[in-house]
Design a protein around this nucleic acid. Structure first.
Lengths: 195, 195
DNA sequence: CTGTTCTCTTACCGTTCGGTAAGTTGCCCT
DNA sequence: AGGGCAACTTACCGAACGGTAAGAGAACAG
């Protein structure tokens, strides 16, 4: 099996940063190429089109999200669920780029099924919820709807960072961060145990 | 005072739809002009640049959000708070375009302070929370952080509609909608009373 | 009847975009 | 030594973009 060249993954990483910051339409191949220190034809050589490069970025994002779930190893299902949600909140705060990519993928999911790479993440999350004793009896739709509000709140807040800082200043924004994290922590624990 | 021509507002409305669907960079003046049935120079005549048109769209959005709050007239503060949040959830579900605009504004808030038009909305919301007896003692940052998770969950879900339908089909999506609305309703009532 | 202003048009311009064509370079395999 | 392939480069292209310039046509004022 051919090993993938390291540069290919490097390009995907640079592209992910740009797409997260400026969106699909706001990102030009030339800009990504300049970040990576190559000509834009280097990108076209690997990915053919800009749309395909974007698809690869989303696919890698999907893998990362699933890996984030599987990295949490607690024995009791409700503990794993809580650990996954806590980890998601922590990561979204520390590296908001992925949250931005997810939200952009949601917004831009037109006829083409751009957001499908997120399905495995949502499915595992749903399964995780239903594995917890407190949520055993609910059907898939209810479990997904229930976690979705947590995931949504986490990512929405993560994505709002620069805007909140612009509106209220760095100081107030830090206070917001603290309050939000504390509040969310309680919420997650309550959710996993359905308190 | 010169009355504003009706066409100006018409253009803003058409532009809002496009910007909501495709984002700032994904929307061309020509496309908005075609929707409105005029040449793109008609738009440039009124707004000068695309960025200024976008700013007007966001400004009108800010006015709409504030009006949505002020339309709710309950006597007891906690009832008003609950009514406002319920109305926001209802509107976000019925007309997701505004939620899309808000989220896009959050994502695209670069150096230029594009999202500032949202400040009045957030400020009134914060004041509303602190007016409720259950939240009287908290400071502004805590109150904002607390509502923000509800607003975030509402808008995130509203924005996810097409994607969820793409992933799971119209049937499952409708079930998700129902569960989410029910869940959120309880959450809002609990929030207003801090149960 | 004339001048002005407001709304909108046709014509055009320079830049940037995504993408194509055709090499060039360096490494690996025989 | 040399053929072949992977990983790029420079050069170029047509289309679409945001924006400018100039003027047409209606409405209204004096």
């Amino acid at each position: 099996m051919s090993e993938r060249p390291a540069s290919r993954d490097r390009y995907i990483a640079f592209a992910a940063r740009r797409f997260a910051a400026d969106g699909f339409h706001g990102t030009s191949l030339a800009a990504v190429a300049e970040d990576a220190g190559v000509s834009k034809q280097a990108l076209l050589h690997f990915f053919g089109t800009k749309a395909r490069l974007y698809a690869e970025v989303l696919s890698a994002l999907g893998d990362r999200l699933v890996a984030e779930i599987e990295a949490q190893r607690a024995d009791a299902p409700q503990d794993r669920l809580a650990a996954v949600l806590h980890a998601h909140a922590r990561n979204a705060h520390a590296r908001p780029e992925d949250a931005r990519l997810v939200v952009r993928a949601l917004l831009d999911s037109d006829a083409s099924a751009r957001a499908w790479p997120l399905k495995p993440f949502l499915d595992r999350l749903t399964a995780l919820v239903r594995a917890a004793p407190a949520w055993e009896k609910v059907d898939e739709a209810e479990a997904l709807a229930a976690v979705y509000r947590l995931i949504g709140a986490i990512q929405y807040f993560a994505v709002s960072g620069p805007t909140l800082e612009g509106i209220y200043g760095a100081e107030r924004r830090a206070a917001l961060d603290r309050h939000f994290a504390a509040h969310l922590g309680d919420l997650i624990d309550g959710f996993a145990a359905r308190g």
